[in-house]
Amino acid sequence: MSECIVITSGKGGVGKTTTTANLGVALARSGAKVAVVDADIGLRNLDVILGLENRIVYDLVHVIEGECRLKQALIRDKRAEGLYLLPAAQTRDKNAVTPAQMRELVRQMKEEFDFVLMDCPAGIEQGFKNAIAGADRAIIVTTPEVSAIRDADRIIGMVEAAELPEPELIINRVRPRMVASGDMMNKEDILEILAIPLLGLVPDHEDVIVTANRGMPAAFDDESIVGEAYRRIARRVKGEKDVPELVLDHDTSFWATLKRWMGLAPTREVAG
């Protein structure tokens, strides 16, 4: 059974591309055959995050316009068995393709792959409509901020209007210390508002920047907490139940320890 999952958010810059790359890597490393598709036509990014930018010959628009076959445009990631990238066109715009063409492309890709992950552009216009056209399922990425959650709510409504099943949530850029001090909404706060199932939390972490510099997503690194967050999310995406929550950070500062010792601080850790 293969499926196309669109990774979307509404608001820009919350981590859709980071999530698509890491989830793609984690799913492939767990044995699935995965294609990650950059649907952000004109603002190609996923190739860079994956470190595959030098290998692009053809792109998504070439495939849709029949200038090459799908197989010719797919770039195989040699670091993970079964991982492929279909890059976006950089010199075209979102109107170069239609939702019907995207549906047909996805149908064709699902014959080859277990998972087709669609990296959606920001916004709610044509690019979004193209990206969700062929999707069977949607993952909403948000950060714990008012503006991102507001846009996520809007997108959840649009996903439901498109008759996709209830979308699932990834909360990205969580800062455990701020959550602990009450200066960042926690997952319960966010779930109370958005009321969709949670796939997991990803910490705000320098690994994301370092791995982006290198073109080597954190999900390749068995030591990385960001990588571990995405590996657990990948297991939940595959339907595994009872994947243990990941403890994002345990405040080991002197005051935190003293407070815990005196029973003054909540002992609950930030996990997800």
Binding site: G182, I193, W255, L264
Partner: peptide, 27 residues
């Protein structure tokens, strides 16, 4: 405040409050 763990109003409560209001009026 740190020692006794008594915090004034937390900023996340403001965020939540404002969000709830926003979303109702968006919808």
């Amino acid at each position: 405040k740190n020692i006794f763990g008594t915090k004034p109003k937390q900023s996340k409560d403001d965020a939540k409050q404002r969000l709830k209001f926003l979303l109702i009026h968006d919808q």
